[in-house]
């Protein structure tokens, strides 16, 4: 465990908590893509099947369970509890455009052709593109609430910190996982445009709105 890893995990957790707090306090999930949240729930479900096969540490197990629970509560809030506030019209990204290539790729490019390994690979590939419905929704409506941008910032920061973690692990442990690294780079690139807007607008007190 290095500083980048722990800060990355904290950012990830913070992002999920910010989103839940936003929905809970405003009693509304306006501006949030339910499709992205379903994809994240699917990402955690397929990746954390290793909870049943391998024990790493108490930290590892607890965090995985928290992430799973947060993801499912978020989906429940959007599609059940506050479904009347859900902006279904603008959440129109076609999920099959992501799911079909990601499923195909996880069968083609994996570490070993076993069910758990394919599902793990699927989760890594899917996570790299899971935010696209949310970014698509923002580009469609042309704006995002400030708290939603904080959520996105910490979610992007998490993956950027993981990149630093992988560089660190490569130098100190000689460990490097090509599937995770390539997907992590792709995932981080998707946030670059957003990071730019976040720094130039949101941090200066302006609302994020697109021209």
């Amino acid at each position: 465990m290095n500083i980048f890893r722990i800060l990355g995990d904290v950012s990830h957790l913070l992002a999920m908590i910010i989103l839940l707090v936003k929905i809970w306090r405003s009693k509304s999930c306006a501006g949030i893509s339910g499709k992205s949240q379903i994809l994240f729930a699917l990402v955690f479900t397929t990746r954390y099947l290793d909870l049943f096969t391998i024990f790493i540490s108490v930290y590892n197990t607890v965090m995985k369970v928290i992430f799973l629970v947060c993801a499912y509560i978020t989906v429940y809030m959007i599609y059940m509890k506050f479904h009347k506030t859900f902006d279904r019209e603008h959440d129109s990204f076609r999920l099959e455009f992501l799911l079909v290539p990601v499923t195909g790729l996880s069968f083609l490019e994996n570490h070993s052709f076993t069910p758990l390994e394919i599902l793990w690979t699927f989760s890594i590939y899917l996570e790299s593109v899971a935010i696209l419905p949310q970014l698509f929704m923002i580009s469609k409506t042309g704006e995002a609430e400030t708290i939603t941008t904080h959520y996105l910032f910490f979610l992007g920061l998490y993956r950027a910190l993981y990149l630093a973690n992988w560089i660190w692990r490569y130098h100190t442990e000689n460990f490097y996982d090509q599937i995770a690294v390539v997907s992590g780079v792709v995932q981080t690139i998707f946030y670059c445009d957003f990071f730019y807007l976040y720094v130039t607008k949101v941090l200066k007190g302006k609302k994020l709105s697109l021209p």
Binding site: R5, D9, H12, D50, T53, I54, I56, S57, N60, M63, K64, F67, H111, S112, W120, Y162, N165, R169, E173, F175, D177, A180
Partner: peptide, 10 residues
């Protein structure tokens, strides 16, 4: 075979 280093990450 499982790679523990990989499963250590979240």
């Amino acid at each position: 075979t499982m790679d523990p280093a990989k499963h250590d990450e979240l």
